[in-house]
Amino acid sequence: MTFRREVARRIFAREFRESSHIIKGDDRYSPQYLLTPTGARCNRIFVVGTLLEKEDRGDGEFWRIRIADPTGSFSGFIGRYQPEALNSLADLEPPQYVAVTAKISVFQGETRTLPSIRPEEISASDSLSRDLWVIETARQTLNRILAMEALSTEDAKLAREIYGTDTSIYREMVRNALEIIKGELEFDREVEKDKVEEKVEKKVPGDEIIEDLEKFLEEEEFDLSDI
């Protein structure tokens, strides 16, 4: 029997946090899915964000983590059953950019259900990967929103029925996330420009030595040809 590997879906933290509906398979061996308010059906997700916290909840063998994106944060747990991630977590110190591939689990609380992530692998990342992730996640979320507004997929219909999703809220979430990335890119460009201007004005170290030398020579009236 060959198993099809589950795709890692792209979901913003806020939408993830607002998800509560589990789709179970026919038998207990079938994979479980979390249906999100815009109709993503996910068993696994991929996130690039900022590791905000790692908290030891059990002698270094059970950690609670929190990873932020521009819309909110993902709560997660890493334990002995995720040896790769447990091993990698040792080298990570918040705050820092991380990339995470994670399975989804859902806690059934008394008042509500809380989705969380169980990282299979976690590793240091960078701001470029974070920006690429936000844009990719924005595009895929927007596609789901458009499908929901047109009621063109079964999962969109189901999600609207369950959550009564107001898509304008999620459009705003996507827009805000994109604006943040756009703002940062513009800021980075300004910084780059400043750096270039600074370079032009700033004398290279060699110039200073020669200047000092010239001053020294003027004072002492040495013959340059001796040097």
Partner: peptide, 17 residues
């Protein structure tokens, strides 16, 4: 590697959303 953000795509998404 992807080495930079596609700013055109970013603008297009901002227009549509």
């Amino acid at each position: 590697f992807i080495t930079s953000v596609d700013t055109e795509e970013l603008e297009k998404l901002l227009e549509v959303v």
